[in-house]
Amino acid sequence: MRLSYPSNIKVIQVPCTGRVDILHLLNAIENGADGVYVAGCLEGECHYLTGNIKTRKKVNYVKKILQEIGIEPERVEMFSLSSAMGLKFAEIAREMNEKIKTLGPTPVRKKEAA
């Protein structure tokens, strides 16, 4: 199964989404990412029991921070899917890519980059 997904998405692998921290997400935004999303296991199917559920809360917290400072919270998302759902993975990637395109480039730009 060769599925294509947008090439502007950089995948960072972690052993469990539970490893993903608020700071990782914030740092991505701070460093100019237009969007960042976490693809975790289906709820109830975490190998470490609740890693994905905990991270969903962290994602929501980051959304709240963005909301507070006037940045679209939709730039940060969490999706649940299993490792066997390649089709879904590609679909989510396209969906997220489309959404970010609609939102436009991040308002967070370092001066030298702008």
Binding site: I22, L23, L26, N27, I29, E30, I65, L66, E68, I69, G70, I71, P107, V108, R109, K110, K111, A114
Partner: peptide, 19 residues
């Protein structure tokens, strides 16, 4: 430690957004 880093990052993001 953690909350200090989060606040610093959030403030930096906010100020970058303001240019």
């Amino acid at each position: 430690e953690k909350e200090v880093s989060i606040l610093a990052s959030a403030l930096r993001i906010a100020r970058q957004k303001e240019g």
